[in-house]
Design a protein around this nucleic acid. Structure first.
Lengths: 212, 212
DNA sequence: CGCTTTCGCTACGGCTCGTAGCGTAACTGT
DNA sequence: ACAGTTACGCTACGAGCCGTAGCGAAAGCG
């Protein structure tokens, strides 16, 4: 999840090891700088000073601003979990509120949108975002579906490729709606909104499943 | 939609008027630079050169990169329309495809996300985006609802504040899903996807309306 | 033809970038 | 204990962009 530039596997058996505390200090300093200065105001020199490291140390681990911010923001999504709330509706509602709580943080807002903007011209960066941020969210959708199938709330998937398309559709609808309301409309994702959204989504899915 | 710094109403009856061609040349040059260089690579000096204008002229009209790109990208949304396709489903499908076609352009991708990132720390910029981009999209939702009510596909709104919340929810769901699929999942919004999405959305709304 | 405003051009200080070079610190294998 | 290897902090540097100031010329208006 962090740099991983040359430290693949168990390489580097000799020499001074990289400071792990420095890694965490740099990422924390990056998040703090995002809060104070935003994406455009953030400079690598400032981050290095905040972290108590030399600027050169920073450049040895990350290629640039983009990669650094991706790693700093990705750590925010570590706390994403899907506790079993008993029903599919409650599970969706919970993950929506959880996701929204992370997005509401100032370091996530400016950081995520900015690196997404850069990723439109940088495939490697897009891949990095996908594996360290997006896929971690998508896994919650798969988990939620599996649970609902066990409960009998959803039928087991018939065609695997069709089921895959459905998961992607649901993911774009859930994440998209939360992101859009939080970052574009700039209005809070509270419990009433999450309930309304969940209701429309589930009724839509149920309807689409019943009359094919 | 453009600068409007001092030229409010019919002010400035004396002196040399600002070149209107320069305005359009600068905005076009900005879009071209966004395609070639992306947001981070775009410099105001380069835009001025492309537009055949002095850098100082650019600064007399726009405060900075953010404002300039907002105006440049906002022009892309001028073509958004809602031709009557006969049914609510067809109308939604049409606007989804139309919106996606604009978002698929490289200048829209990097430009929009970048200014949105900046807007999280700049209220004036957020307001500028809202009036020149977001509200223009939202109007289509209102138009579509009005048409559907005339056709009898949707009931007339009972509680105005509740109807307002519903419009906002639909807007976030439609725009959010399209934005997320295009810019985050980086997969195309084609006709099959638009149909699946529209079906789930409409069935969900119908269900939510029937059992309150 | 004066008045006013915009235009193109040049020049500038200030800031950030990303890298190079150096001496020192930390850890490993013999 | 010692040599080998890698990371570290520090300093310095050229390059590029930013945003502004100052100038003379151009374009409208009364």
């Amino acid at each position: 999840m962090v740099a991983d530039m040359q430290s693949r596997g168990s390489a580097h058996r000799t020499g001074r090891p990289r400071s792990v505390e420095a890694d965490e200090a740099i990422l924390a300093a990056t998040r703090a700088a995002l809060v104070d200065l935003g994406w455009s105001g953030l400079t690598l020199g400032d981050v290095a000073t905040r972290a108590g490291v030399a600027k050169t140390t920073l450049y040895r681990r990350w290629a640039g601003k983009n990669e650094l911010v991706v790693d700093a923001v990705a750590a925010l999504f570590d706390e994403l979990e899907l506790p079993d709330r008993g029903t599919l509706a409650a599970d969706i509602e919970g993950v929506v509120l959880q996701f929204a709580a992370i997005l509401a943080r100032p370091e996530a807002k400016s950081g995520l949108l900015a690196v997404l903007a850069e990723s439109t011209r940088d495939d490697a960066l897009r891949e990095r975002i996908r594996t360290s941020v997006v896929d971690r969210q998508k896994r919650l959708v798969l988990e939620g579906r599996a649970r609902a199938q066990v409960r009998g709330e959803l039928p087991p998937e018939s065609d695997p490729s069709s089921a895959d398309r459905t998961v992607n559709l649901i993911f774009d609808m859930v994440a998209g709606a939360v992101v859009h309301r939080t970052l574009v409309s700039a209005e809070p994702v509270d419990t009433p909104w999450a309930q309304s959204f969940t209701r429309v989504l589930l009724l839509g899915l149920a309807g689409a499943a019943s009359h094919p």
